[in-house]
Simulated scan of single mutants.
Amino acid sequence: MGSTFFITGQEVRQAARANSHTSTTAGLAPGHIQANLIVLPSKYATDFRTLCQRNPVPCPLLAESTKPGCWSAIKSCIPSIPSTTLINQSSDLDLRRDIPRYMVYHDGELDESAEHTDLFTHWRDDDHVAFLIGCSFSFEAALCEADLAPGHIVGGMNVPMYRTTLPLNPAGVFTGGTYVVSMRVYKAQDIDHVRATTAPYASAHGEPIAWGWDAVSRLGIADVLQPEWGDCPLGPDGKELEFGPQDGGGIDCGEIVPVFWGCGVTPQEAVMRAGLQGTAMAHAPGHMLVLDCLDEVLKAQ
């Protein structure tokens, strides 16, 4: 995946801008904050902020546009973190092209007619408001340092992500939404260590919301081997799983179990459920905006 090639967030953004890197950002610029993007018409901005406030686990709000239509500057939504820490003053930013791949929604429907590597033709300079949501990729460097490297990093893949039936707290036009979760597979004996390692990163979804094979049905996940986004789940060794809860879980494979976190694709699902009018935009799942600051600043925020 080239994770050693990109050392800084700016390098990742420049590669995305040049279309020289169009795949997942998992493992890139280790130790740097990665963020989900959602861009909405300004009339929905207040409701979306409220949605994030009411659902801080799947939708931890990091920053937003400095004003409607602005794609080159963001303001921090975390009081203890200055905006210039997220994006250095010496760096430039273009939210329309600094992510490897994007999703575009028209009146709540996903535009699948083309692969979107930039947002030039869709962004309205007089209206769109961008929001940055914390991403679990931001705590993966800590997992690696704790000898708990996620299987998708080991195997060079994208993290698997799933729709659930776990409801969001509604806000304004955003009603009927449910959590999206990401999954990493671990040995059962490592769960407490995994929880303790990720818990301080509340602004990057924090500790897992569920784990164990029984969690698959409790979350309403149809098939753990068939994620809605990302790649097929990999075990801690980076090899593809070939069993699920119907096979007795991980009993025959060293007691490995799935572990689920809140996921920043959740706002995209909320947009589709709400059927918003106009054009909304977002990152493609697994393709994040990599910021200039280190993920250590998110600890205990």
Rank of each mutant, 00 (worst) to 15 (best):
Val180Gly: 02
Leu219Thr: 09
Trp261His: 10
Gly262Pro: 00
Thr178Trp: 00
Ala29Pro: 10
Asp92Ser: 14
Gly69Pro: 05
Met288Arg: 00
Asp125Gln: 10
Ile33Met: 11
Phe174Gln: 05
Ser91Gly: 06
Gly244Gln: 04
Arg97Cys: 15
Lys43Tyr: 01
Gly177Trp: 01
Trp213Ala: 03
Val12Pro: 12
His32Asp: 02
Val216Ser: 05
Leu86Glu: 03
Gly249Ser: 04
Gln268Val: 06
Tyr102Thr: 10
Thr46Arg: 11
Pro245Asn: 04
Glu242Val: 09
Gly275Ile: 06
Ile87Glu: 05
Gly9Tyr: 05
Ile251Asp: 11
Tyr201Ile: 07
Leu37Cys: 04
Leu51Val: 08
Val154Gly: 07
Asp98Arg: 01
Gly254Trp: 08
Asp147Pro: 02
Gly248Ala: 05
Phe48Val: 04
Thr266Phe: 03
Met281Asn: 03
Thr46Gln: 14
Ile209Glu: 00
Ala270Trp: 02
Asp295Gly: 11
His122Ser: 13
Trp229Cys: 08
Asp247Leu: 03
Asp231Gly: 06
Phe131Cys: 05
Ser42Phe: 00
Val104Tyr: 07
Asp98Ser: 13
Ile256Asp: 02
Asn55Val: 04
Ala215Gln: 06
His193Arg: 14
Gly151Thr: 10
Thr165Asp: 11
Ala18Gln: 14
Arg195Gly: 01
Trp211Thr: 05
Pro30Lys: 07
Ile38Leu: 14
Gly155Arg: 13
Leu298Lys: 08
Arg96Gln: 15
Gly212Trp: 03
Ser182Asp: 07
Leu62Ala: 03
Thr50Tyr: 02
Gln277Glu: 15
Ser91Glu: 11
Cys135Pro: 11
Leu40Glu: 04
Pro150Gly: 08
Asp111Lys: 10
Thr8Asn: 09
Gln14Met: 10
Leu168Val: 08
Thr198Gln: 09
Ala15Pro: 09
Pro160Cys: 09
Ala35Leu: 11
Ala270Lys: 01
Ile81His: 04
Ala114Leu: 05
Ile191Met: 11
His32Asn: 14
Tyr105Gln: 02
Met103Phe: 07
Glu269Val: 13
Ala35Asn: 07
Leu168Glu: 09
Pro58Ala: 01
Gly264Asp: 06
Leu234Pro: 09
His152Thr: 03
Leu241Ile: 07
Met183Lys: 01
Glu296His: 11
Pro79Met: 03
Gly156Pro: 06
Tyr44Trp: 00
Asp126Phe: 01
